[in-house]
Design a protein around this nucleic acid. Sequence first.
DNA 1: CTATTACATTGATGGATATGACTGTTATTG
DNA 2: CAATAACAGTCATATCCATCAATGTAATAG
Lengths: 117, 117
Amino acid sequence: MPIDLELAPKQRRPNGSPCCEPVVYPDVQREQALRMAEVAKALGDPIRLQLVDVLRKHAGKVCVCELVPLFDIAQPTLSHHLKKLRDAGIVDSERQGLWAYYYVIPNALEELSAWLS
Amino acid sequence: MPIDLELAPKQRRPNGSPCCEPVVYPDVQREQALRMAEVAKALGDPIRLQLVDVLRKHAGKVCVCELVPLFDIAQPTLSHHLKKLRDAGIVDSERQGLWAYYYVIPNALEELSAWLS
DNA sequence: CTATTACATTGATGGATATGACTGTTATTG
DNA sequence: CAATAACAGTCATATCCATCAATGTAATAG
């Protein structure tokens, strides 16, 4: 059940009583909000957002060594950001020899995107 | 200029040299990433995301007193979250007597939404 | 085997963040 | 005017976060 309560419109205030009856909050959508907030939080850093932007615009997988020179941060810091994106379920990686290739998980952004539009 | 570099695909590593030529990063899109990350960061909290959800689903303006009972947080904490959303340019408020009415700023989410889809 | 490269992890640190208790401001009731 | 209600701001605290330096791991070159 989406959050679509009939919130009481403007109200008078008798006195000695709160202005609004407490609206019962439908506990549903809670989990969806948690999931979407987790994704949004991961995107809430300019570097991570640009990382996702780069990865999205390259259908294939991108090597970490190609991502490092794009930003003014040290390699461990980039690794840290990539881990955040991985923990949020936005990207995943694949190891091939010495290199690690990252890619955006298909539909990982879909729920948030649908909610925003 | 959007981030759409031709990242060199997989590469060999001669030896004594880094694996990839440093890719020149187009400094543009930086500001856009900053703006979108700011919005995403503000949405990166379940309570704030649900707040925006409630406000969006009510075309009119919603009184703070109607928002408070929806969440298990104290009123000052809710006020803080609303301020975060205000600072991020997502919502605005209007004072009418004792009450403050909040609403989502039209198109405030458009840039992020467009980028996500 | 030794050196080096690519990447991840750990630890430390300064800065931001979420929360609640308290206080302040404004407006309305009586 | 006095009391109260609605909301915002301040302060303190505990937690989280971004960053870097240093280290660890795995693989490849020589």
